[in-house]
Write a protein that binds this DNA or RNA. Structure first.
Lengths: 206, 206
DNA sequence: TCCTTTTCATAGCGATCACTATAAAACAAA
DNA sequence: TTTGTTTTATAGTGATCGCTATGAAAAGGA
């Protein structure tokens, strides 16, 4: 095997025999599909094609590997969805496009169904992990809320609109869509739910 | 200890020293809080106050105990929510009351947050269990759809309303509310999401 | 009283869990 | 080459997993 990570400064000892990023990608897929508790080190080492000592040397332990895999997942989602939120001309269109894109991503054929973050540790014994994940999920709401507030400031929404409640509503729907996708819902069905949710958008005038 | 289950026909051997229903109730609580994979037999025997052989003699194995606990949970929910759906004067009010009642139940202080069914095995390695649960969750949609269809038949909804999509939407919201509750959402916040979702109800005239 | 039946608590089964001690292998520096 | 550093694969560690063998205890029937 050859060293594949050319970006790191050449160190002294024997070079790593596997691609750290590729291994992390494979670990992410397994965690995404099976969850934290449902995934064993054996599952991981088989998917990553490395032995346990290599895993522990490169990633610390199971929990840190999980968090790093989740961070990688979230970074990918932020890269896809962030510009979509920012660049939409109105808050309404931003949310609409976000939901449609989520419907597409959650039902992709070549990836685990649903959202790795939303479906993580929803009922699990790892309380410390659970609270960390709840916090990350709360960040999603914050992003929606910020975009909606921009729309309110631009007078797109009725004065006095409860932005927090609206952000909560669409976050709730995103979580529900993730679970629906995991239960086998088609992209079409997810899009229909997204479109129904857009009917709840506050009317311009009242 | 005394025999507590007086309804069963007296059998020959030594009488059971614990209340089967009470033990099942305690098992339900643990599974509800920690999920299937996050709960060990030790967790269960401690909560149920029995030893492993008693658990296996009375309930079969871990999976069957789980399914029986889940059935008990669902029966309770059906008893509370079923009449609410049936007796509401219109489909719209039926869904509205259901969502409000779900908000209350999901944020009860003396029970695990969220819904045992909706949060079960959302990402887990037990694929057979996962598909069973997906099926049970699909039954919730069926119940909503049936009620909405009644409303359509009673001309409460515009002709040509996509009842399936509407049922999917409110099921999606229910799943999302369960996840929100598990992440710490208040009853007030859940109610707000429910009310927002009711704005998506089809207009009477168009 | 004695036999049969069922449940009980103790103790422990093999398998798997997350994780690691060890030493050979593969590199850079001396 | 020699030395030092890091990664490698093998082969485990103790702990916990779901589950059960065993024999005493507690009941009814003979």
């Amino acid at each position: 095997m050859k060293r594949t990570d050319a970006s790191a400064p050449r160190l002294r000892g024997r070079p790593r025999g596997f691609d750290r990023e590729a291994a992390l990608e494979r670990a992410m897929e397994v965690f995404w599909r099976q969850g934290y508790e449902g995934t064993s080190i054996t599952d991981l080492t088989r998917a990553m094609r490395i032995n346990p000592p290599s895993l522990y040397a490169a990633f610390g332990d199971k929990e840190r590997l999980y968090l790093e895999a989740l961070e990688r997942y979230q970074q990918g989602r932020r890269d896809e969805l962030g510009p979509l939120l920012d660049q939409a001309p109105t808050a309404r269109q931003a949310i609409e496009r976000l939901l449609h894109e989520a419907a597409r991503l959650y039902a992709q054929p070549d990836a685990p169904r649903g959202c790795m973050l939303m479906l993580s540790c929803t009922a699990c014994a790892e309380t410390s992990l659970q609270s960390q994940l709840a916090k990350r999920r709360a960040d999603v709401k914050k992003a929606l809320k910020a975009r909606i507030e921009r729309g309110l400031a631009a007078s797109e929404l009725p004065r006095g609109t409860d932005v927090d409640a609206l952000a909560d509503f669409y976050t709730t729907l995103l979580k529900g869509m993730a679970l629906q996708a995991r239960d086998g819902a088609s992209r079409r069905s997810l899009v229909a739910a997204a479109e129904a949710a857009m009917r709840a958008w506050p009317a311009r005038r009242r």
